[in-house]
Amino acid sequence: MSRDYELGVIFSPEASEEETRSVLDRIEQIVANHGGQIVKVNQWGRRRLAYPIERHRDGFYVFIDMVLTPETVSDIERTLKVSEIVLREMVRKRDPKAVQREREEREARAAAAAAAPEATEEVPAEGTTEEAPAATSAEPTTEEAPTTASTEATTEEAPAEETAAAEPAAESNEEHIEA
């Protein structure tokens, strides 16, 4: 019976990229040999440790979501404990409700991504321009740049006006107190 697991590994900051890649490849190989599946690999990169481990203040964090049998977990743990570049490792069983929610979100995104290319193919056929997909890019366009600059200028001027408006109010409060 397969279950969802999350593997967290902290590699030594002195380890080369080739060494970490070889350990990750070995994990992938173990998972594939036992009929498991790697769902997602999340490499956080180099981060500060909460406390020194083997005189290291930093570590290279990697998190892997997998679908495995419980027997496979023991093989992965054994492999990681033998490796000299692994500072810490932890395998934990994931909450089935959270896993189901993530699967539904992933399927919804895949369906939306599959529908998006079909929609962009239909847009030129209807006679509209192709500028709409360019506007959805993550990079700001030249039209958006002046808007952000004017917004910044407005926010810089606003505090000065607010302070000027607040000073007469403070004076009137002092007059009321004195009377």
Rank of each mutant, 00 (worst) to 15 (best):
G8V: 12
V9S: 07
I10M: 01
I10N: 00
S12D: 12
P13G: 02
S16A: 07
E17C: 04
E18M: 01
S22R: 14
V23F: 11
D25L: 09
I27T: 05
I27N: 03
E28W: 07
V31C: 03
A32R: 15
A32L: 12
N33S: 14
H34L: 08
G35Y: 11
I38K: 02
K40G: 06
N42G: 09
Q43G: 05
R47Q: 11
R47P: 03
L49I: 03
L49T: 01
R55L: 07
R55S: 14
H56M: 02
D58F: 08
G59E: 00
F60M: 06
F60Y: 14
D65V: 03
M66F: 01
T72R: 04
V73Y: 00
S74P: 06
S83H: 05
I85S: 00
L87C: 04
R88I: 04
E89I: 08
E89K: 11
M90W: 04
V91R: 00
R92V: 14
K93Y: 05
V99Q: 07
Q100E: 10
E104T: 08
E105R: 15
R109G: 04
R109Q: 11
A112V: 06
A114S: 10
A115I: 08
A116M: 15
P117T: 13
P117V: 13
E118D: 10
A119R: 11
T120E: 11
E121W: 10
E121K: 15
E122I: 07
A125H: 06
E126T: 11
G127F: 12
A132H: 07
P133I: 11
A134F: 10
A135V: 12
A138P: 01
P140H: 05
T147F: 11
A149M: 10
T151N: 10
